[in-house]
């Protein structure tokens, strides 16, 4: 699957691979430890943020999302 930033697709693939493994093998099995993919995510995220700015995609509040953010009304 491609990234919105053409140059980010390989970084995304590496991160997805790491995340999907953790999600299936740890998270869904009740292991509460954090995923080991933060370094890969950081590289990928930096690349995507740049692409989003360049393409002027109107993302709301992405910079400010953190663990304490409540889910939106649905």
């Amino acid at each position: 699957m491609n990234s919105v930033g053409e140059g980010c697709t390989e970084l995304k693939r590496e991160y997805d691979q790491c995340f999907n493994r953790w999600f299936a093998e740890k998270f869904l099995k009740g292991d509460r430890s954090a995923d080991p993919c933060s370094e890969l995510f950081h590289k990928y995220h930096t690349c995507v943020q740049k692409a989003i700015k360049e393409k002027d995609i109107p993302i709301e509040g992405v910079e400010f999302m953190g663990p304490s953010r409540e889910k939106p009304d649905s």
Binding site: S3, V4, F23, H45, I52, I57, V62
Partner: peptide, 20 residues
């Protein structure tokens, strides 16, 4: 295209993902 913009575990152990 699918991108993960933000992802984190909350205090209840739930996984939040924001994607584009």
């Amino acid at each position: 295209g699918v991108d993960v913009l933000d992802r984190n575990l909350d205090t209840h152990g739930r996984l939040h993902s924001h994607r584009l």
